[in-house]
Structure formats: C-alpha cells, structure tokens
Design a protein around this nucleic acid. Structure first.
Lengths: 330, 330
DNA sequence: AGGTCATATGTAACCCATTACATAGGAGGA
DNA sequence: TCCTCCTATGTAATGGGTTACATATGACCT
C-alpha cells in the first residue's frame, strides 16, 4: 500500500507538504503543488481515510436507520438525503432495524464508536428520554416518524391535517360511514392520523363509531383482514381511509374479490402516494408526502447540526397534498 | 471523550492490559479482568473504532452498490446479506448508483480508501477489465447481474433457463404468438432471458418474429408503451413475457384499459415475484428468484474472500421457480 | 548592511487502539 | 539456594494521515 510517506519521498518533499496538496491548502507554491500532484498521479496514490478519519475525528458518513428498505415509501426520501449529503461530501449508510430495539442499539454503537458522524431515525424505537440523551452528545435528526417528547429535531408532514383532508374528501363525496384502517405499531403518525380522521367526522356532525376503526399491521394482509371485517359488519361503511397505500390495496383486493366495486360500493383512500398507487386498478386516491424534500431537509438539518453542535432542535413540517384518483371518484 | 488511556489510568493498569480485556485476550488474570471491566462500565467507555480500524486496517463494513433501493427486488437480497454480515460482525452500507458510472466510481473510492472492506455489485456499470483489475487488490462479489468476462465471483440464477421455463409455460397454454418485453439497459440478464425465450420458441417450432420483441426501460411506463405497441400491430400476440414484474404490470394496466381481459385476451408473465405480483389484479404469474439466499450466499462468498484473499473466483447459480397465478391461467 | 515580514516548507506531536517485545515475579525442580 | 520457565503485565512502536509550531528563504524597506 502506498502511503503519504512514499509520495513525500518520491516527490522529494515532506509529508506535510503532500498533505497540504491533498487538502488544497493555499500555502503551497504552484511549482511544488504540480510536482507533488504529478507524483500522486504517477504512484496512483489514494489517501487512506482511516488515518484521516482518526486524526480529524470524523468519517463523513451518516447512518440512516429505517424499519426496512422494502418499504417503497423510503426510496425517494433516501434519494433526497443522498443528494444533499453527496454535495457536501457525505455518504449515506442505510440500515434496517426491523423495529428491533436490539438491532437499533447495535447500530447506535456505530455512532458512539465514531464510525458515523450522525444518525437519522426514520422510525425510532428507542425511548424519548434515551433519544434526547443521545442527542446531547451526538448528531441526531428524526424524519417522518418522531418521538413527541424527545428534544431532537424532526422533519415530517402534519399528519393530523393530512388525515383530516383525506377524510373530508370522502365526506365531500357523500360518505357518512367511513372506516379507518390504522396501523398498530405505536408510531406517532398513527395517533395523529386518527385524530385528523375524527376531527373531520366531528366537524361534519358525524358520530364516531369505534366499530369503524380497525388496527392491524401495516401491509397487504392487514388491509385484507380489515376490509373483510368491514364487509362483514351490519352497517358496513361505504368508504375506507387506510393509513398506507399497501393497506389500502389489500383492502381493495378484498373488496373486489367479494364482487364489489371500488369506488362505487366502497371508496378507498390510501396514504403516501407510493409508486403502486397510480399503477393499481383502480388508481388510488392518496395523500402525497413531499418525500424527496423530507429527505433533503432532514439532511440539511443534520449537516447544520454537525457544523454547529449548539444548534437548537426544531420541528419542521412540510406540505402534503391529496391526490384524487379513481378509487374514490367514479 | 474517554479513551483507553483514561480507563488504564483509572484502573491502575497499562493501556495494553485494557486493550487485552477489550479483545478477550486470554493472558489476563481474572482479577485484573474484572477490575478493568468494572472501570470500563463505570466510565461508560466505548472504544473509538477509528483508532482500531486504522490499526487493524479493516472496518468491518461492506458496501452494496445497487441501482436504486426503490426497486423492490432488492429488499430481501439485502436482508440476506445483512443477516450473514451481522452474524459475523459486519455492517452493510447500501448506496444507490443510479447506474451512473461517475457515482459508482465515487463509491469505489470508499473501497480504495479503505473505508469498506469489500464491495458487492448488484449491477456493475464498470467495464469487465476494470472490475477484474479492482478485484485483484480488493474484495469484490457480484450479485444477480454480473460482468460475463470479469474474473470476479458472482451469485445469480440461471436467467436463460428461467426465461425458457416462463416462455414454455405460455406455450403450454396454447400460445403461439408470444411477445417479449425486454429491458434496454444492457445488463446481462436481458440477453440471457432473451436467449431462453428464443430457445423455448424454437424448440416448439415457433418462428421468432422480431416484431414481437420490444426493448424499453424497466418500469411501469415501459410496460405500458410496449403493450400499447403490441396491441396496435397487425397480428397481435396473445401472450407477453416481461422481464420484470413492474413491466408486466404496466402492460396489464394498458391491456385492461383497452377493455381487454388478462389472461383471456392476453396472458402476461412477469419476473422476480416482487410483493406486487401477488397483490395485483389479476395476480401475476412470475419467476421467483431465491432472493434471500442470493444475498446470503453473496455475503458468504464475500466473507470467505476477505478471510482468504487468495480464494478463487466462482460463479454460483441458485434455483429459481415459476409461480403460476391468474395472469396466465384462466 | 541590517531589520522586518511574508511565504514556503519541514519537524514532530497527535488522534486512539493494537501488539511485538521486554520484564517482573512466582512456581517448581535440581 | 539457584536456575528455568511460565504467566501477567508494561513499554513503546505502529498504523496513516493532519497540523501547530519552528525555520529557512527571499523580498523589501530604511
């Protein structure tokens, strides 16, 4: 392996000068710079970042902890983070936690052991207090899901307002019995979306019927199960608001399988506007999150925090929008 | 920051002894070990991995280069890699290349700069020669897609045989005019699958009609465009083999939109058995790859190579299977 | 000429953990 | 008692950069 020493010797200068050339330090004469650069090129020298990282005590790596990359919701968010990181010389490291606290903890070691300069939590399972504590010593930002009582920056949409808008849309289509298929993993968006759903009903003078609120796992099967239940009850709903596209699609599949039509017999709204929403049959009405920007802003806040460790934590909410497609409008 | 020096001082031993305790070196007396461990716990000392990495010249990180994590095909593969890596103390770093040679090259710097111990290519854009060259000095494995003439280990399925089987299935359903929707990105699976498609036709005594072979970008739109074309030509095909599920779904959407039925008017086969295949309406007949195992085996070969740098490169082919659903069978 | 100052470069400490080698101290045998 | 050998521990070199500080060189001024 070629080291800075080898380059220094070959170029007839000291390692300090080579280092200065590598880092574009101004106090190197043009002549020397050229000579050193030529030697670097000749030897095809690549600085060993392990040495640099140790000395600088930084790695220019950001860890992104998400539940599972299988979730199509994440891809554009990660893209936003990557683009901003890349521009600033940072690399992104994506890791699946499977919402397993043990795994999450294992990855947090990378932070504590200085192998990454910061961590983005997409769905923290750690407690509010621990998260706040970690944030005192390390750079942490939350994206989309966040811990309400943790004093740690977060970037998300206003889930309550988004759910309110989605439910209102169903009401405006004449629906009075509207089912909610919520997740059951205890993340903050669930309770916020339920609040928005309830507020829309209340404001429209519709009584909240706990029979119409189902909790199941995120995913296709959860949607199928919930829809099956809704179709089985006495006064079945005429519309469903599902807190994710995949849940909504599971529900639609179930409804169609029963020989019913979407949206005529049952309207369905999803959430996230993942790729499948527009591809499905019928195309899905859904709440679009500004995914790229969620990632972009998250990374901007992260870099700000890395540069100024004293930066105050903040909550940022980005705009969402309701995308109306054929699953709710005949 | 607490260093090994602090621990040594507090415990009244040398740094060497602390290091030995950290690394479970046998030549430490039980008494000393306990004393040091107590101090470590008391100070909540976390070894700085930057120091360790520099000294050991390894980072226990593996870089996985894929085109884009948005592709649902990857998630289980990555899971397989992670599980094996995790068990062996390795972390996985996922990076999107967008098939951009510049980005790919930038990430390869992480390898050359020693920031990762190895690289998995899921879709190399680099040339066969360069790849072979890199593999001489660094640990590299290819997964799913690979460079045919690069002397670098790879793990994949037999794409030719899989496409042969898929096409044969359509033939067995009585189809004689079978369209192929292939990708146009030049990866090896494209030509292999086309070969398999052609072989199945030839063996069944069906003439190959170049009118029935379309090349478009991977993705929903590509599928739609190709289907639109197939529906417009004179002697339209009665079945389509698409080289990815998303392409197939784009095609189905287009077919249904024209008021035709799948599979009655047009049967469709996809590839990969991604989640959407079973969720779609109709559920999609597709070729399932052993995705978890592809990842698992890839990582096993990687670790083998890391441990024994002299290990020979090899090509591993895992079993695939055709999953028949309603998009081809009434 | 002598002094001041800026520029360019070198020397060596430093980041933190690992480990080869050295050594102290105790056990056991002659 | 003296010697050998083993165990436990310490000392210091090491990995590859970065950078504070020291110094050499030369320009410019009086």
């Amino acid at each position: 392996m070629i080291t800075i020493q080898d380059v220094a010797k070959a170029a007839g200068v000291s390692v300090a000068t080579v280092s200065r050339v590598l880092n574009n330090h101004p106090s190197v004469s043009e002549k020397t710079r050229e000579k050193v650069q030529r030697t670097i090129d000749q030897l095809n020298y690549q600085p060993n970042l392990l040495g640099r990282n140790l000395r600088r005590s930084e790695t220019k790596m950001i860890l992104v902890l998400l539940q599972n990359i299988a979730n199509p919701f994440y891809s554009k968010i990660v893209k936003g983070m990557e683009d901003v990181g890349y521009k600033n010389g940072y690399h992104i490291m994506i890791c699946n936690t499977d919402s397993d606290p043990i795994k999450e903890n294992a990855y947090l070691k990378l932070l504590k052991n200085r192998l990454v300069d910061g961590v983005v939590f997409m769905a923290p399972v750690i407690s509010d207090e621990e998260l706040t504590e970690i944030s005192k010593n390390y750079c942490v930002v939350q994206c989309c899901e966040y811990k309400e009582f943790a004093d740690v920056s977060s970037v998300s949409i206003d889930n309550e307002a988004a759910a309110y808008k989605a439910t209102q849309h169903l009401i405006s289509q004449g629906h009075r019995r509207i089912g909610l298929i919520n997740g059951n993993s205890g993340i903050i968006s669930e309770s916020q979306r339920e609040k928005g759903y309830k507020r829309a009903l209340q404001e429209a003078g519709i009584e909240i019927d706990s029979q119409l609120i189902m909790y199941d796992s995120y995913g296709y099967r959860g949607g199928q199960r919930a829809a099956k239940y809704f179709l089985s009850i006495d006064k079945r709903p005429t519309a469903i608001f599902a807190v994710s596209d995949i849940i909504a699609i599971g529900a639609i599949k179930e409804i169609k399988e029963k020989g019913l039509s979407v949206p005529k017999d049952m309207a369905v709204v999803g959430f996230d506007d993942t790729g499948i929403a527009s591809m499905y049959d019928p195309p899905l009405t859904t709440v679009a999150q500004p995914r790229y920007d969620l990632g972009r802003v998250t990374m901007e806040i992260m870099l700000e925090r890395i540069r100024n460790n004293e930066a105050e934590s903040k909550r940022v909410f980005l705009e969402h929008s309701l995308i109306i497609r054929e699953s709710t409008v005949g």
